Amino acid sequence: MTFKAACIGLTAAAALAAPVLAEYPERTIEMTIPAGAGGGTDTSARKLAILLEEKLGTSIAILNVGGGGGSVGASQFMQAKPDGYALFATWNSPLTTVPQVQNVAYSLDSFTPIASTSETAYTLCVKADFPATTGEEFLAELAANPGKYTYGNDGIGGTMQLAAERIFQTRQIEAVAIPFGGAGETLQNFLGGHVDIYGGSISTVLPYVESGEAKCPLVTSAADVPALPGASGLEALGMADKETLLWRAILGPKGLDPQIVSLLADTIEEAVNDPGYVEFLKTKGEVPNVVKGEALGARLQAEFDALAAVSKALGL
Protein backbone atom coordinates (compact mmCIF):
# COMPACT_ATOMS: atom_id res chain seq x y z
CA MET A 1 0.00 0.00 0.00
CA THR A 2 1.33 3.47 -0.92
CA PHE A 3 1.66 6.26 1.64
CA LYS A 4 -1.09 8.19 -0.14
CA ALA A 5 -3.41 5.18 -0.05
CA ALA A 6 -2.66 4.64 3.62
CA CYS A 7 -3.50 8.26 4.41
CA ILE A 8 -6.76 7.98 2.51
CA GLY A 9 -7.57 4.83 4.47
CA LEU A 10 -6.86 6.50 7.80
CA THR A 11 -8.92 9.52 6.84
CA ALA A 12 -11.84 7.29 5.87
CA ALA A 13 -11.55 5.37 9.15
CA ALA A 14 -11.52 8.60 11.12
CA ALA A 15 -14.55 9.84 9.22
CA LEU A 16 -16.42 6.65 10.11
CA ALA A 17 -15.35 6.75 13.76
CA ALA A 18 -16.08 10.43 14.40
CA PRO A 19 -19.91 10.17 14.21
CA VAL A 20 -19.93 7.53 16.95
CA LEU A 21 -19.41 10.12 19.67
CA ALA A 22 -20.96 13.01 17.75
CA GLU A 23 -24.33 11.25 17.78
CA TYR A 24 -24.09 9.40 21.09
CA PRO A 25 -26.28 9.27 23.05
CA GLU A 26 -29.35 10.21 21.09
CA ARG A 27 -31.97 8.05 22.80
CA THR A 28 -32.76 6.30 26.09
CA ILE A 29 -30.15 3.98 27.58
CA GLU A 30 -31.43 0.82 29.27
CA MET A 31 -29.59 -0.22 32.43
CA THR A 32 -30.03 -3.85 33.52
CA ILE A 33 -29.61 -4.61 37.22
CA PRO A 34 -29.39 -8.37 37.95
CA ALA A 35 -31.30 -8.08 41.24
CA GLY A 36 -34.68 -7.03 42.53
CA ALA A 37 -35.60 -3.47 43.40
CA GLY A 38 -34.54 -2.08 46.76
CA GLY A 39 -31.29 -3.97 47.31
CA GLY A 40 -27.82 -2.47 47.65
CA THR A 41 -26.87 -2.72 43.99
CA ASP A 42 -30.27 -1.44 42.87
CA THR A 43 -30.27 1.64 45.09
CA SER A 44 -26.66 2.47 44.22
CA ALA A 45 -27.26 2.07 40.48
CA ARG A 46 -30.44 4.15 40.51
CA LYS A 47 -28.73 6.96 42.37
CA LEU A 48 -25.84 6.86 39.92
CA ALA A 49 -28.20 6.73 36.94
CA ILE A 50 -29.73 10.08 37.92
CA LEU A 51 -26.29 11.69 37.78
CA LEU A 52 -25.45 9.97 34.49
CA GLU A 53 -28.66 11.23 32.94
CA GLU A 54 -27.65 14.79 33.75
CA LYS A 55 -24.13 14.37 32.41
CA LEU A 56 -25.01 12.38 29.27
CA GLY A 57 -28.09 14.41 28.44
CA THR A 58 -30.38 11.44 27.99
CA SER A 59 -32.74 9.30 30.05
CA ILE A 60 -31.80 5.94 31.58
CA ALA A 61 -34.45 3.25 32.00
CA ILE A 62 -33.87 0.72 34.78
CA LEU A 63 -34.61 -2.97 34.18
CA ASN A 64 -34.46 -5.25 37.22
CA VAL A 65 -33.83 -8.90 36.31
CA GLY A 66 -33.23 -10.88 39.50
CA GLY A 67 -32.64 -14.57 40.08
CA GLY A 68 -29.82 -17.09 40.28
CA GLY A 69 -27.56 -14.84 42.34
CA GLY A 70 -27.46 -12.39 39.42
CA SER A 71 -26.88 -15.02 36.75
CA VAL A 72 -30.34 -14.64 35.19
CA GLY A 73 -29.82 -10.93 34.54
CA ALA A 74 -26.27 -11.49 33.32
CA SER A 75 -27.38 -14.22 30.91
CA GLN A 76 -30.13 -12.00 29.53
CA PHE A 77 -27.89 -8.97 29.19
CA MET A 78 -25.21 -10.76 27.18
CA GLN A 79 -27.69 -10.85 24.28
CA ALA A 80 -27.88 -7.03 24.14
CA LYS A 81 -26.59 -5.11 21.13
CA PRO A 82 -23.18 -3.46 21.66
CA ASP A 83 -24.43 -0.04 20.56
CA GLY A 84 -23.99 1.86 23.82
CA TYR A 85 -27.66 1.81 24.71
CA ALA A 86 -27.49 -1.21 27.00
CA LEU A 87 -25.55 -1.08 30.28
CA PHE A 88 -25.16 -3.68 33.01
CA ALA A 89 -24.98 -2.42 36.61
CA THR A 90 -23.85 -5.27 38.82
CA TRP A 91 -21.91 -6.28 41.87
CA ASN A 92 -18.94 -8.58 41.44
CA SER A 93 -20.50 -11.85 42.63
CA PRO A 94 -22.49 -12.74 39.45
CA LEU A 95 -19.27 -12.51 37.44
CA THR A 96 -16.59 -13.90 39.75
CA THR A 97 -18.39 -16.13 42.28
CA VAL A 98 -21.60 -17.55 40.83
CA PRO A 99 -19.81 -19.26 37.89
CA GLN A 100 -17.79 -21.25 40.45
CA VAL A 101 -20.88 -23.08 41.71
CA GLN A 102 -23.43 -22.80 38.89
CA ASN A 103 -23.43 -23.64 35.21
CA VAL A 104 -23.94 -20.25 33.57
CA ALA A 105 -24.31 -19.24 29.94
CA TYR A 106 -21.74 -16.44 30.14
CA SER A 107 -18.08 -15.85 30.95
CA LEU A 108 -16.03 -12.74 31.65
CA ASP A 109 -15.44 -12.47 27.91
CA SER A 110 -19.18 -12.02 27.38
CA PHE A 111 -18.96 -8.40 28.59
CA THR A 112 -17.02 -5.21 27.97
CA PRO A 113 -15.66 -3.74 31.23
CA ILE A 114 -16.40 -0.01 31.48
CA ALA A 115 -15.80 1.15 35.07
CA SER A 116 -16.19 0.06 38.66
CA THR A 117 -18.00 2.50 40.94
CA SER A 118 -17.70 1.67 44.63
CA GLU A 119 -16.53 -0.97 47.06
CA THR A 120 -16.84 -2.13 50.63
CA ALA A 121 -15.68 -4.99 52.77
CA TYR A 122 -17.76 -7.86 54.06
CA THR A 123 -17.73 -8.32 57.80
CA LEU A 124 -17.97 -11.07 60.40
CA CYS A 125 -19.90 -10.03 63.50
CA VAL A 126 -20.90 -11.61 66.81
CA LYS A 127 -23.17 -10.78 69.73
CA ALA A 128 -21.93 -8.36 72.37
CA ASP A 129 -21.20 -11.17 74.86
CA PHE A 130 -19.03 -13.24 72.50
CA PRO A 131 -15.69 -14.10 74.19
CA ALA A 132 -13.55 -12.13 71.72
CA THR A 133 -13.41 -8.53 70.57
CA THR A 134 -10.40 -8.03 68.30
CA GLY A 135 -9.82 -9.80 65.03
CA GLU A 136 -6.92 -11.79 66.47
CA GLU A 137 -8.97 -12.87 69.48
CA PHE A 138 -11.89 -13.83 67.23
CA LEU A 139 -9.77 -16.07 65.00
CA ALA A 140 -8.05 -17.62 68.02
CA GLU A 141 -11.42 -18.47 69.59
CA LEU A 142 -12.61 -20.15 66.39
CA ALA A 143 -9.33 -22.03 65.95
CA ALA A 144 -9.48 -23.32 69.53
CA ASN A 145 -13.02 -24.65 69.02
CA PRO A 146 -13.18 -26.48 65.66
CA GLY A 147 -16.73 -27.04 64.46
CA LYS A 148 -18.32 -25.26 67.43
CA TYR A 149 -19.33 -21.99 65.79
CA THR A 150 -21.73 -21.43 62.89
CA TYR A 151 -21.61 -18.47 60.55
CA GLY A 152 -24.40 -17.26 58.30
CA ASN A 153 -23.56 -16.36 54.72
CA ASP A 154 -25.11 -15.54 51.37
CA GLY A 155 -25.52 -19.10 50.08
CA ILE A 156 -23.45 -22.17 49.25
CA GLY A 157 -20.43 -20.95 47.34
CA GLY A 158 -21.51 -17.31 47.75
CA THR A 159 -18.95 -14.55 47.93
CA MET A 160 -19.28 -14.23 51.71
CA GLN A 161 -18.59 -17.91 52.28
CA LEU A 162 -15.57 -17.86 49.97
CA ALA A 163 -14.32 -14.65 51.60
CA ALA A 164 -14.58 -16.22 55.06
CA GLU A 165 -12.96 -19.48 54.01
CA ARG A 166 -10.02 -17.65 52.44
CA ILE A 167 -9.33 -16.33 55.93
CA PHE A 168 -10.23 -19.48 57.86
CA GLN A 169 -8.07 -21.77 55.73
CA THR A 170 -5.03 -19.62 56.51
CA ARG A 171 -5.51 -20.27 60.24
CA GLN A 172 -6.79 -23.89 59.91
CA ILE A 173 -10.17 -22.82 61.28
CA GLU A 174 -13.19 -25.09 61.02
CA ALA A 175 -16.44 -23.17 61.30
CA VAL A 176 -19.81 -24.38 60.05
CA ALA A 177 -21.22 -22.38 57.11
CA ILE A 178 -25.00 -21.91 57.16
CA PRO A 179 -26.38 -20.55 53.85
CA PHE A 180 -29.17 -18.01 53.66
CA GLY A 181 -30.80 -15.98 50.92
CA GLY A 182 -28.74 -12.84 51.44
CA ALA A 183 -27.50 -10.46 54.11
CA GLY A 184 -30.99 -9.55 55.34
CA GLU A 185 -31.96 -13.17 55.98
CA THR A 186 -28.55 -13.86 57.54
CA LEU A 187 -29.05 -10.93 59.90
CA GLN A 188 -32.48 -12.15 61.02
CA ASN A 189 -31.11 -15.58 61.87
CA PHE A 190 -28.09 -14.08 63.62
CA LEU A 191 -30.24 -11.80 65.77
CA GLY A 192 -32.59 -14.71 66.44
CA GLY A 193 -29.73 -16.84 67.74
CA HIS A 194 -29.85 -19.43 64.96
CA VAL A 195 -26.22 -18.79 63.96
CA ASP A 196 -23.33 -17.58 66.09
CA ILE A 197 -21.73 -15.28 63.53
CA TYR A 198 -23.16 -12.84 60.99
CA GLY A 199 -21.34 -12.86 57.68
CA GLY A 200 -22.42 -10.24 55.17
CA SER A 201 -22.40 -6.62 54.08
CA ILE A 202 -21.60 -3.85 56.55
CA SER A 203 -24.61 -1.65 55.83
CA THR A 204 -27.06 -4.40 56.83
CA VAL A 205 -25.62 -5.00 60.30
CA LEU A 206 -24.36 -1.48 61.06
CA PRO A 207 -27.47 -0.27 62.99
CA TYR A 208 -27.07 -3.18 65.41
CA VAL A 209 -23.39 -2.43 65.90
CA GLU A 210 -24.22 1.18 66.65
CA SER A 211 -26.86 0.09 69.19
CA GLY A 212 -24.38 -2.22 70.93
CA GLU A 213 -26.28 -5.41 70.15
CA ALA A 214 -23.49 -6.71 67.93
CA LYS A 215 -19.76 -6.20 67.47
CA CYS A 216 -17.69 -6.87 64.38
CA PRO A 217 -14.13 -8.03 65.08
CA LEU A 218 -13.16 -8.62 61.46
CA VAL A 219 -13.59 -7.21 57.96
CA THR A 220 -12.56 -8.91 54.73
CA SER A 221 -10.64 -5.92 53.36
CA ALA A 222 -6.91 -5.50 53.78
CA ALA A 223 -7.39 -2.07 55.33
CA ASP A 224 -9.51 -1.13 58.32
CA VAL A 225 -13.00 0.26 57.61
CA PRO A 226 -13.95 3.66 59.14
CA ALA A 227 -17.58 2.57 59.53
CA LEU A 228 -16.43 -0.24 61.87
CA PRO A 229 -13.61 1.25 63.96
CA GLY A 230 -13.42 -1.85 66.18
CA ALA A 231 -12.87 -4.30 63.32
CA SER A 232 -9.47 -5.55 62.21
CA GLY A 233 -8.50 -5.38 58.57
CA LEU A 234 -6.59 -8.34 57.15
CA GLU A 235 -3.33 -6.42 56.74
CA ALA A 236 -3.08 -6.08 60.51
CA LEU A 237 -3.51 -9.85 60.78
CA GLY A 238 -0.85 -10.63 58.18
CA MET A 239 -3.39 -11.72 55.56
CA ALA A 240 -3.67 -8.75 53.21
CA ASP A 241 -3.48 -11.09 50.21
CA LYS A 242 -6.74 -12.77 51.34
CA GLU A 243 -8.78 -9.61 50.78
CA THR A 244 -12.25 -10.09 49.30
CA LEU A 245 -14.46 -7.08 48.65
CA LEU A 246 -18.01 -6.42 47.60
CA TRP A 247 -17.75 -3.99 44.71
CA ARG A 248 -19.97 -2.65 41.98
CA ALA A 249 -19.37 -1.90 38.32
CA ILE A 250 -20.92 -0.89 35.01
CA LEU A 251 -20.28 -3.12 32.00
CA GLY A 252 -21.43 -3.24 28.40
CA PRO A 253 -22.10 -6.05 25.97
CA LYS A 254 -19.17 -7.73 24.26
CA GLY A 255 -17.89 -5.70 21.31
CA LEU A 256 -18.84 -2.24 22.60
CA ASP A 257 -17.06 0.53 20.68
CA PRO A 258 -13.89 1.67 22.53
CA GLN A 259 -14.85 5.33 22.03
CA ILE A 260 -18.15 4.78 23.81
CA VAL A 261 -16.40 2.79 26.53
CA SER A 262 -13.99 5.68 27.12
CA LEU A 263 -16.77 8.29 27.17
CA LEU A 264 -18.90 6.26 29.57
CA ALA A 265 -15.95 5.44 31.83
CA ASP A 266 -15.01 9.10 32.17
CA THR A 267 -18.64 10.10 32.77
CA ILE A 268 -19.08 7.38 35.40
CA GLU A 269 -15.92 8.52 37.15
CA GLU A 270 -17.22 12.09 37.26
CA ALA A 271 -20.59 10.94 38.62
CA VAL A 272 -19.08 8.64 41.26
CA ASN A 273 -16.93 11.50 42.59
CA ASP A 274 -19.91 13.85 42.83
CA PRO A 275 -20.00 15.03 46.49
CA GLY A 276 -23.63 13.98 46.86
CA TYR A 277 -22.90 10.47 45.63
CA VAL A 278 -19.82 10.16 47.84
CA GLU A 279 -21.97 11.08 50.85
CA PHE A 280 -24.62 8.58 49.75
CA LEU A 281 -22.00 5.82 49.60
CA LYS A 282 -20.74 6.77 53.04
CA THR A 283 -24.17 6.04 54.53
CA LYS A 284 -23.87 2.52 53.10
CA GLY A 285 -20.36 1.95 54.42
CA GLU A 286 -18.96 2.15 50.89
CA VAL A 287 -16.27 4.28 49.26
CA PRO A 288 -15.82 5.39 45.63
CA ASN A 289 -13.49 3.20 43.61
CA VAL A 290 -13.18 3.72 39.86
CA VAL A 291 -11.18 1.23 37.81
CA LYS A 292 -11.65 1.59 34.06
CA GLY A 293 -11.58 -0.56 30.94
CA GLU A 294 -8.79 -3.11 30.67
CA ALA A 295 -7.74 -2.57 34.28
CA LEU A 296 -11.26 -3.49 35.38
CA GLY A 297 -11.11 -6.58 33.20
CA ALA A 298 -7.85 -7.58 34.89
CA ARG A 299 -9.43 -7.08 38.33
CA LEU A 300 -12.35 -9.32 37.40
CA GLN A 301 -10.04 -12.04 36.11
CA ALA A 302 -7.77 -11.93 39.17
CA GLU A 303 -10.73 -12.24 41.54
CA PHE A 304 -12.29 -15.01 39.47
CA ASP A 305 -9.05 -17.01 39.63
CA ALA A 306 -8.59 -16.49 43.38
CA LEU A 307 -12.14 -17.55 44.22
CA ALA A 308 -11.88 -20.53 41.87
CA ALA A 309 -8.97 -21.80 43.95
CA VAL A 310 -10.95 -21.46 47.20
CA SER A 311 -14.03 -23.08 45.66
CA LYS A 312 -11.96 -26.02 44.47
CA ALA A 313 -10.40 -26.46 47.91
CA LEU A 314 -13.89 -26.57 49.46
CA GLY A 315 -15.09 -29.07 46.87
CA LEU A 316 -17.87 -26.78 45.66
Score class of each variant (00 low, 15 high):
F190I: 12
A163L: 01
Q301E: 05
G36T: 02
L139S: 01
G192T: 14
P82E: 02
V98F: 08
Y106E: 06
A74R: 13
T117P: 13
A115H: 07
L56C: 06
L56A: 03
Q79N: 07
A80L: 07
L234G: 05
N103V: 03
L108T: 05
E235F: 11
G66N: 03
K55V: 04
F138V: 05
T159L: 07
T267R: 15
F180L: 09
G73T: 05
N189G: 13
V310P: 04
A140E: 04
P226R: 04
A249I: 05
E23F: 11
P253N: 09
F77V: 02
D42S: 05
G84L: 02
A144R: 06
G69Q: 00
L245W: 03
A49Q: 11
L16G: 08
S211M: 13
K254H: 15
N64Y: 06
G135L: 04
G192E: 11
A183P: 12
Q169V: 06
V65I: 14
R248A: 09
A115C: 08
D305H: 01
G252Y: 04
E53N: 06
C216K: 08
N64R: 03
L264F: 14
P94Q: 01
E210W: 14
E23Q: 12
P131Y: 04
V278R: 13
G238V: 05
G212Y: 12
E119H: 15
Y85F: 03
A223E: 14
A15V: 13
A115F: 13
G181I: 08
I62T: 09
Y198N: 09
D83R: 08
A298L: 03
P82M: 00
